[in-house]
Amino acid sequence: MKLTIITGGLREPSSTRLLADRLVTAVAGELEHRGDQADASFVELRPLAHPIMDAMLTGFTTDALQSAFQAVVRADGIIAVTPAFNASFSGLFKSFFDVLPEGALSDMPVLIGATGGTERHSLVLEHALRPMFSYLHAIVSPRAVYAATSDFGSQAGSALGERIATAAADFARLLSACSPRARRDLVDEDLASMQQLLGGATGGT
């Protein structure tokens, strides 16, 4: 299974990346348990911030951003993790999906996660991330994971570990049920519909 992990953390080290790492490790373990292999690649958004904004302004992409798009399109599943900013995902995280080619996430299993200063923001997953991915026709795994700063402390740590383990088990089941993803060629689809139109247009009266 090709897994692509999209992380929108801005600082180094990033707690968003930390959560993403723990999620992918847990999912890989679950997949292995099911006799499957996880082949993980990471798309870090911070180094792509300028290309993402340029793409929004010009409509075209640099090679680095194009490779990130390819990593998304070729994946069998996505793990997407963002910091919570002002009651939503970060603007950079949203911008990446705003410039991602249409259809790239159609029928894509997605596990969502978010990080924040306090657990009071945890519903950002249900109010911001889940609707966006549903709109993009992704298949969003039912259990999302939110990690607050306190979750990384020793006392609450095991609770986060349990949430990660349960979410990973769900997502691994979803990935297995969906099986490797059939890739659509949107260019070919556009051309096919054009050919159909041309076939009709030349008939004349």
Partner: peptide, 24 residues
């Protein structure tokens, strides 16, 4: 940007002009 235009030009044997300047 769209491949459909290339298809249209090819179908009729007309010329195809690529804008070129706004894309890689």
């Amino acid at each position: 940007r769209t491949p459909e235009v290339a298809e249209l030009a090819a179908y009729f044997g007309d010329g195809f002009f690529a804008n070129h300047i706004f894309w890689p």
